[in-house]
């Protein structure tokens, strides 16, 4: 199961790098979404996989059974998802504003904005 998920994570990383390197800012944002999902899955895989082993202590027992799902990696991902969601909302609004500001959603247009006119006069 870990092997399979490793390939999924790798595929997501590759796709996100491809999208981030595109010119269009909307693709960049989608690339960042994929990257953040890839990283979340990576943490999940790193917490080791179990199947159908909820983290409960049976009634009458003092300790949990030997094999239980790792709750820590789930908590980490939950935090990372929430943070990523907030940052994504900000980025989307920013891209929207750039579009309204004069279709500045292409990296060439952005580059042209950067040049300091005072250097060339």
């Amino acid at each position: 199961m870990e092997i399979l998920l490793s390939f999924v994570v790798g595929g997501l990383f590759a796709a996100s790098v491809y999208l981030i390197l595109r010119r269009n800012l909307v693709r960049l944002v989608i690339g960042i979404i994929l990257l953040s999902n890839a990283v979340n899955l990576l943490i999940f895989t790193m917490g080791r996989m179990t199947r159908g082993e909820p983290g409960f202590i049976p009634v009458g027992e003092e300790f949990p059974p030997e094999l239980i799902a790792n709750p820590l990696s789930q908590a980490l991902i939950l935090t990372a998802i929430v943070i990523g969601f907030g940052l994504l909302a900000f980025t989307l609004v920013l891209v929207y504003r750039m579009n309204k500001e004069g279709r500045l959603v292409d990296s060439d247009a952005l580059r042209a904005e950067e040049i300091d006119p005072s250097v060339y006069n």
Partner: peptide
């Protein structure tokens, strides 16, 4: 929200998000 701040900010935001990930 000046135009030059927005264009600067998108670069800053994108690269820093990637770095955090």
């Amino acid at each position: 929200n000046t135009r030059e701040q927005l264009t600067a900010n998108i670069k800053y935001v994108a690269i820093n998000l990637v770095s955090s990930l």
